[in-house]
């Protein structure tokens, strides 16, 4: 008679104990994005003037021409992207205000978009912004070690910029290179919006990422794509193992035999 009640009580007790056991270690949930509100600083406040450069003004015109004149606000993402490239990889409040002015919406509508997308940086990043993929396939293949190697080599924490302003490390969600996991992306803001590149370095190892960083520091551009010399793009290591010969034609069914 009392068995169900006792079982229920013991189960509940277990649950309660579990909650208490968890709490000290798990104090807060971490979020991928930075703060969702702005704090004025000398290099980021609404009073600093900001405008697109003359060459980019042409690009702005081109971007706006893709949309009907009464739907200018659709251009918010391409314009923010352009502003971010021009401003060395991050968006100041005045840059967002400038975009709002161009597309004729209230600034808050631009802030909403910029805070929503994690690829818009609202805090300073390095000239080379290194993004480590942290999603499951890359994590299984050792993305944490890669991030640790980068952070240790550069002497920064995640989200920080090195003293010389050259590098910063961030985390990204899946960038679609799972077959070449683990991978990092290098957003290169060293040549402004004209020479902006966003390159994938795949099949990296903790040793290789450090080499990549050093090459970038010297101004060289490492080979893009897989870093495993034995792989061609996303093909298997050591050459193809299947589909080696000429593909055979599909077998022709002998309909009469059926």
């Amino acid at each position: 008679m009392f068995a169900p009640a006792a079982r229920l009580a013991s189960k509940r007790l277990l649950e309660i104990r579990q909650i208490f056991r968890q709490s000290p270690s798990q104090t807060s949930r971490s979020f991928s994005t930075a703060l969702n509100y702005h704090i004025d600083s000398p290099d980021n406040n609404p009073n600093t003037p900001w405008d697109f450069s003359d060459t980019n003004k042409e690009k702005v015109k081109d971007i706006l021409s893709h949309y009907p004149s009464n739907y200018k606000q659709s251009a918010v993402i391409p314009l923010l992207d352009l502003a971010q490239q021009q401003h060395g990889g991050w968006l100041t409040v005045s840059a967002m205000n400038a975009v709002a002015k161009i597309i004729e919406v209230a600034p808050i509508r631009v802030f909403e978009v910029a805070t929503f997308y994690s690829m818009f940086n609202r805090a300073k990043v390095g000239t080379y912004h290194l993004l480590v993929c942290g999603t499951t396939p890359c994590m299984i293949r050792g993305s944490r070690e890669i991030e640790d190697a980068l952070l240790k080599h550069l002497g920064v924490k995640r989200g920080e910029v090195t003293k010389d302003g050259m590098f910063s490390v961030g985390e990204m969600e899946c960038m679609g290179s799972c077959v070449n996991a683990p991978m990092i992306t290098v957003a290169d803001y060293s040549k402004g919006s004209e020479g902006y590149t966003y390159n994938y370095y795949e099949d990296v190892t903790p040793k290789r990422v450090v080499e990549i960083v050093e090459m970038l520091r010297r101004g060289e551009i490492p080979k893009v794509g897989t870093q495993n010399p034995q792989r061609i793009m996303s093909g298997p290591e050591g050459g193809n193992t299947t589909l080696l010969g000429e593909p055979k034609p599909p077998p022709c069914r002998d309909l009469d035999a059926c």
């Binding site: 949930r29 969702n36 409040v93 209230a106 802030f111 909403e112």
Partner: peptide, 25 residues
């Protein structure tokens, strides 16, 4: 946005980090 006509408030961030705010104070 619609009635008061002062577009100051917005929905910032996303997911569980989503919050109502003005971004710039």
């Amino acid at each position: 946005t619609e009635i008061a006509g002062t577009e100051d408030l917005g929905m910032l961030g996303r997911g569980s980090g989503e919050e109502i705010g003005t971004y710039v104070e």
